[in-house]
Simulated assay, not measured.
Amino acid sequence: MTPAIDSLKKAGVPFAVHQYSHDAHAESWGTEAADKLGLAPARVFKTLVVAQENGTLAVGIVPVAGLLDLKHLARALGCKKVAMADPKQVERSTGYVLGGVSPLGQKRRLATVIDHTAQQFETIFISAGRRGLEVEIAPDDLAAQLDARFAGIGK
């Protein structure tokens, strides 16, 4: 189906797939997912790719209702500064198009930090690798699959 879903199946991790009809004119892909699936925006997380000062890419996963705090993400990654990565670089590196970037099944595993608010939920929703497709997964299972850590990176 998508590399994200394939990676979860291969790992034997419990998850559920949720599909909705994507509107190409939606202003916010993450908010659209929450609205169309009838979910609280705090449970739906977006995958954001950043570039560290040395050019290395990394991932921050935050609720769609909030923003990524670049300073806090840099601190969690152990570097001085990060900036949002160039969209073309994101697509080349991850293999996904913007609005459908999943932290799972990327071409290369990137250092990943998940906002600590994910831990307050039994399951969260992340992109399954295509607009209109979400994966529901336990936060700890997601972190284990990505070798990620939790930190306060949202605002």
Score class of each variant (00 low, 15 high):
residue 147 D to S: 11
residue 137 I to Y: 00
residue 7 S to L: 10
residue 146 L to F: 01
residue 22 H to P: 10
residue 49 V to I: 14
residue 140 D to P: 08
residue 105 G to H: 01
residue 10 K to F: 14
residue 45 F to W: 06
residue 2 T to K: 02
residue 109 R to L: 08
residue 151 A to L: 07
residue 88 K to V: 14
residue 118 A to Q: 04
residue 77 L to V: 09
residue 145 Q to N: 09
residue 144 A to H: 05
residue 90 V to F: 07
residue 88 K to N: 15
residue 39 L to S: 03
residue 77 L to E: 03
residue 147 D to E: 13
residue 61 I to S: 04
residue 41 P to I: 04
residue 147 D to F: 07
residue 26 A to D: 04
residue 144 A to K: 07
residue 110 L to M: 15
residue 16 A to V: 14
residue 77 L to R: 03
residue 153 I to F: 08
residue 44 V to D: 00
residue 89 Q to H: 11
residue 112 T to K: 02
residue 37 L to K: 01
residue 112 T to Q: 06
residue 84 M to N: 10
residue 27 E to R: 13
residue 16 A to M: 13
residue 119 Q to A: 14
residue 116 H to E: 10
residue 79 C to L: 14
residue 54 N to P: 05
residue 35 D to L: 11
residue 69 D to A: 10
residue 30 G to K: 01
residue 43 R to A: 05
residue 135 V to C: 01
residue 73 L to D: 01
residue 114 I to K: 02
residue 9 K to F: 14
residue 70 L to Y: 04
residue 54 N to K: 10
residue 141 D to R: 05
residue 81 K to N: 11
residue 93 S to G: 08
residue 76 A to P: 00
residue 73 L to S: 01
residue 11 A to N: 13
residue 105 G to T: 00
residue 52 Q to K: 13
residue 48 L to V: 11
residue 93 S to N: 10
residue 54 N to E: 12
residue 144 A to L: 08
residue 155 K to A: 15
residue 13 V to T: 15
residue 21 S to A: 15
residue 32 E to M: 08
residue 130 R to T: 05
residue 55 G to L: 06
residue 78 G to F: 07
residue 8 L to T: 06
residue 104 L to P: 00
residue 75 R to Y: 06
residue 71 K to H: 07
residue 106 Q to K: 09
residue 12 G to H: 15
residue 104 L to G: 00
residue 4 A to Q: 03
residue 90 V to M: 09
residue 10 K to M: 14
residue 14 P to K: 11
residue 86 D to F: 09
residue 28 S to Q: 11
residue 51 A to R: 04
residue 106 Q to H: 12
residue 52 Q to A: 12
residue 1 M to V: 15
residue 53 E to A: 12
residue 106 Q to V: 09
residue 54 N to C: 10
residue 114 I to G: 00
residue 146 L to I: 01
residue 80 K to G: 14
residue 30 G to M: 02
residue 113 V to R: 02
residue 79 C to S: 12
residue 54 N to D: 13
residue 24 A to N: 12
residue 58 A to L: 09
residue 88 K to Q: 15
residue 124 I to C: 03
residue 59 V to S: 05
residue 67 L to N: 14
residue 119 Q to K: 15
residue 118 A to V: 06
residue 113 V to N: 01
residue 86 D to W: 12
residue 27 E to W: 15
residue 109 R to H: 10
residue 140 D to E: 12
residue 91 E to P: 01
residue 91 E to C: 05
residue 131 R to A: 06
residue 35 D to F: 04
residue 74 A to D: 01
residue 52 Q to Y: 09
residue 126 I to L: 03
residue 64 V to D: 00
residue 35 D to V: 07
residue 120 Q to G: 13
residue 69 D to M: 06
residue 61 I to M: 09
residue 8 L to G: 04
residue 18 H to Q: 11
residue 77 L to C: 06
residue 71 K to C: 07
residue 69 D to F: 05
residue 133 L to T: 02
residue 124 I to S: 02
residue 60 G to D: 05
residue 78 G to Y: 08
residue 49 V to L: 10
residue 62 V to E: 04
residue 149 R to D: 07
residue 136 E to M: 06
residue 16 A to D: 13
residue 138 A to K: 05
residue 60 G to N: 06
residue 39 L to F: 04
residue 95 G to K: 01
residue 50 V to H: 01
residue 17 V to K: 06
residue 65 A to H: 05
residue 17 V to E: 10
residue 28 S to R: 09
residue 7 S to A: 12
residue 98 L to M: 14
residue 7 S to K: 06
residue 108 R to Q: 15
residue 26 A to Q: 08
residue 148 A to C: 08
residue 99 G to V: 10
